[in-house]
Each structure stands twice: as structure tokens, then as C-alpha cells.
Design a protein around this nucleic acid. Structure first.
Lengths: 130, 130
DNA sequence: CTTGACCTTCCAGCGGCTGGAAGCCCTATC
DNA sequence: GATAGGGCTTCCAGCCGCTGGAAGGTCAAG
């Protein structure tokens, strides 16, 4: 498979696939013309990467997951630890966003949103009272 | 005020303050020795920026908010629109994270997390069934 | 007069791509 | 055989919002 075909199959942009090779996540073969040649296994790994990335795993976590995936002797505990840590990260991020959202929603709600200049949002950002 | 003092007062790193000057968010004076000199107004604007950034507004949104803050003739509707759009962005991000979280939590829960190699997390990432 | 804290500028790098330029390769059509 | 087009290659630059570090000027205290 050429890069275009594997891109179409995995949904990943060709640019991204080249980047993944550059940082050593995949190692496709090369044809005589210099074109990358992707095996079924490569395509499979790229799909794996696409799913892991879409779940928010960092590239380095993906590298670890891919290594565990390739290792037939892995302990599922190792995989679970990586995933659990990422889950905790997601929870932390959600909590952070919810706090932002709560504060911002209060300010937005308090704002008349009309032609007048008085604005609780700006007052809040300026540090009035609280 | 020198940069260190305003940094202490606003909680922003000096590096960040210099960066904000570089991109034109603030325009502190300069002393004869080349040091930046921050007025009360500068410090106030920096505190404003710190709060806006901590609510997740982008730098460009902060620029707009700061301009509205400075404009005594603004309409609160303009501020409210910026804030509401950002609120919608936050909501979208939360929704995205919750989807990730749900998928990941299912996988983690299904994983025994023991010494055995079988792992529903890896199977999920590999695209088995679904 | 030295120490050390503070300030300055400039350049590089983080993550994870993404865009674009310049040029080679391959196939199809005339 | 020429040409047009699409796909492939490499390389370099840029996105966002800082952050770190190097190399050097400035200032107050002892």
C-alpha cells in the first residue's frame, strides 16, 4: 500500500503518517522509487494509533501502548495503568473546564447584553469584589 | 514597578509578561536603564489578562476583551457575545472529553489488570468488533 | 570592589501536527 | 514521444502560549 491508500483506510492524513514515521511510531518499508510501502500490519498499527489519539492519549502514551500491543507477554495490568492514568488526566481536565464554565456562565448570565456599557463580565475579569 | 514586582502582584511569570508585551497586549514604559516600568493601569490590565486566560480565553479573545474593557462606549452585548462563544467552546470541549472518558472508562473497567496478556483495552484500540 | 539579585535580548523548543515549495515518479492520453 | 495530472518525496516554516537557557547590562548591599 502507498501512503495515500493507507491514509484513506485509516482516516489519518498522509502528513500525519509521515510524521509518525519521523518520530519512530511506525517503520514502513521503502520501494525502489523511494515510496513508502505499508504492510497490513502497518495499516493496523496506524488505525490503532488513530483510535488511541482520538481517546486523547499523548504520542508518548501511544508509543507505550503500541509496544504493549506488540508484546505478546505483556501484563494487562501495565496497559490498565497507562489507561487509568490517562483517565485521571481526562477527569482533571473535565473538572477544570467545569470550573471555568461555572464562573463564565455566571458572568454571562449577569450581563444584560444590550447597548449599555456596564458589563458584569468585564467587571468580573477586572477583579471587582471577589 | 519593575517586572518582578508586577509579576509577584499578578501571579504571572515575568516571561509571560514580556511575551504579552511582545505580542502587543500591553505597552509598559521604559526607564533610562532599559528596564520596563509598569503603571498601576498596566498591572491592572495584566491581572485582567491573567483572569481571562484562566477562564480559557485565547490570546486573541483577550485582546478583544481588553479593547472592550478600555472602551467606555462599548455595548455589553459585544462582551457577552465573545464570552458566550467561548462558553460554547468550553461546552463542546467538555462534551468531547466526556465521550472520551466514557469510552475509556468502559475499556478500563473491562480490563482485569493482572499478569495475563489478554487486554480489552488493547483489543478496543485495535478495533476489534465495534 | 565584589557579590548576587534583578533586569535585558535573543534563540530554541515543547506537542502534534499542518501548509507550502520544489522536485521526482507514474499513468493516461494525444 | 510529449504532455498533463495526480501522487509521491524532502525540507522548512508556522500554529499556540508560553518556557528554558545563554550571554550580558544594572543596581543595591556589604
Amino acid at each position: 500500500m502507498n501512503i495515500g491508500q493507507v491514509a484513506a483506510r485509516t482516516g489519518l492524513p498522509a502528513k500525519t503518517i509521515r510524521y509518525y514515521e519521523e518520530i519512530g511510531l511506525i517503520r514502513p518499508m521503502r520501494g525502489e522509487n523511494g515510496y513508502r510501502h505499508f504492510s497490513e500490519r502497518d495499516a493496523h498499527n496506524l488505525a490503532f494509533l488513530g483510535r488511541a489519539r482520538s481517546l486523547g492519549f499523548t504520542i508518548e502514551e501511544c508509543r507505550v501502548l503500541l509496544a504493549l500491543y506488540a508484546d505478546q507477554g505483556r501484563a494487562s495490568a501495565d496497559v490498565k495503568r497507562v489507561a487509568s492514568e490517562h483517565l485521571a488526566q481526562i477527569d482533571a481536565k473535565i473538572a477544570e473546564l467545569r470550573e471555568m464554565r461555572a464562573t463564565l456562565a455566571d458572568l454571562v448570565e449577569a450581563c444584560a447584553g444590550d447597548h449599555r456599557p456596564d458589563c458584569p463580565i468585564l467587571r468580573g475579569l477586572a477583579g471587582e469584589d471577589g
